[in-house]
Nucleic acid binder design. Sequence first.
DNA 1: CCTTGTTAGTTACAAAATCAACTATTATCC
DNA 2: GGATAATAGTTGATTTTGTAACTAACAAGG
Lengths: 145, 145
Amino acid sequence: MTQKDEFDLQNFLPYLLNQAAEESSYAFQRVYKDRYGMLRNEWRVLFHLGRYGQMTAKEIGERAKLHKTKISRAVGKLEQRRYLLRTRDEADRRSEILSLTPAGQTVYKDLRETAQGYDAKLSAMFPTGEAALLRGMLRRLSGID
Amino acid sequence: MTQKDEFDLQNFLPYLLNQAAEESSYAFQRVYKDRYGMLRNEWRVLFHLGRYGQMTAKEIGERAKLHKTKISRAVGKLEQRRYLLRTRDEADRRSEILSLTPAGQTVYKDLRETAQGYDAKLSAMFPTGEAALLRGMLRRLSGID
DNA sequence: CCTTGTTAGTTACAAAATCAACTATTATCC
DNA sequence: GGATAATAGTTGATTTTGTAACTAACAAGG
């Protein structure tokens, strides 16, 4: 029975990552959820349009690694709330060009500020330099680099 | 328009953590899902019982930070599959003592091996020492320490 | 004891994610 | 050009999660 069973969930990287992700997302989630009634995918779509300007659902999907059904539904919701506009792309009538309305941009800016401040607070948990290292490692794990 | 808008989702810690968690969980998820038809919560409950021996649903909840409904459903599923047994706790008849069947233990051991190997592979992505640092930071973010 | 409050766990209903099938349009290639 | 395949996006059916209400058992105070 006394196997070398040091292995513990609390050392398992996927588990740790999930816990950290959940915990660290919580406070910010409350903002976009409670303040704007938005879901995570809606916030992500909003962010991409706010940050990078107009683009199609497909492009958002590629950048944000979101499945097209998630995007489709998020776009629908954001449109209902008058945060975004769709325009048929006349060059390729299958796709739509999405862009934020002024209202959407206002929400984006508010959420971006909040996110930025929250990120700073999280980063401040670590000594100088370490937060940057952490980001690098996470990017590596996500297969971004 | 040329605001100091360096802020990017790809630098936002909660986002990075989510991406890394998703990506790094994927390969392992396929194992317990495809090989045993299990869900994440089921694997976690199984793991806790396999690793620490019999305990009640409540104790699992505290250790694994899982809500009681998730545990309740996971336990039901694991029982159906004959991976665990419930015994009414005679000292407190509200709670049940949960334990793995031999079949459950076999599954646990297999998954633990797989997890261990997978974790080693992930850790090997980083120079010596850095993986430990990463774990420490993640624990910190999860509020474990 | 007996009312009131807690706690362990389940269940029911609503919200959301997943997966496959579907429509409309464009690209390929004979 | 016309059949076939590929692509953008939507919709519907199923599964999974989240939330709140519920049952059963224990605890505490009078």
